[in-house]
Amino acid sequence: MLVIEGLHVEVGRTEILAGLDLAIPAGEIHAVMGPNGAGKSTLANVLAGRDGYRVTAGRVKFLDHDLLAMSPEERAAAGVFLAFQQPVEIPGVPNMYFLRTALNSLQRAHGLAEIGPSEFLALAQDKVRLVGIDPALMSRSVNEGFSGGEKKRNEILQLAVLEPRLAILDETDSGLDIDALRVVADGVNALRRPDRAALVITHHRRLLDLLVPDRVHVLVGGRIIRSGGAELAGELERTGYTGLRDDRRDPVATIGASR
């Protein structure tokens, strides 16, 4: 579903991603773990199409699309969803209205009929209950004055309503208590279907215990240096990133470098 090949990305004059390869087949949940500064958020932002990142080499294929050539809204219409690490506050735009506008934008992009206010309300109410977000927050401005946990729940609500093909979670678990963490895990698990996939970017194992990813990738220095099954998360917790063996480095090149 998502194939990233040799992706190099610069922010300013600094190279953050240095030849990243990653493939996520449909139906799977993959986790990317790594230390601070490894390029985790850069990966998420580049996939969603945020400005300020310069792709100098590599390509990203999503379904049949050349993802990097698309605008953020086109990516969303194609099925990409980024749960933000720091959801943005938007004063004056009511949450419910925002969510309906987003859903109807996707409907329009797919040539489908728009969903009217009352029909949407019924649809949203179920999901609101599901993610345990205070219904009062639906009539407030998007994320304005929300607590950290409420903002993350709101991200998962959007995920549940918009039902993307590929959900990217950028450290959505950071700073969450166990209840909120379960909401996030349930939100992603609910989308576990043969035609969907998720990329869960995280620092910690906690979320992965609830989510059980199909694959875990370790991102260090802008590259995936190791991949494994869900058990890799446990190994990482014991050894840390520094003690990790680099599977991907070409042995000849390594020997050459040491001479």
Binding site: E73, V88, I90, G92, A102, L106
Partner: peptide, 28 residues
Amino acid sequence: DQDALFYLRSRGIPDRDAQAMLVAGFAA
């Protein structure tokens, strides 16, 4: 706010509509 604009667009709201939403939000 460019961050807000990106947030809206990342949810599928076209640039023009997203800008109009932010303008309306400012006046709200």
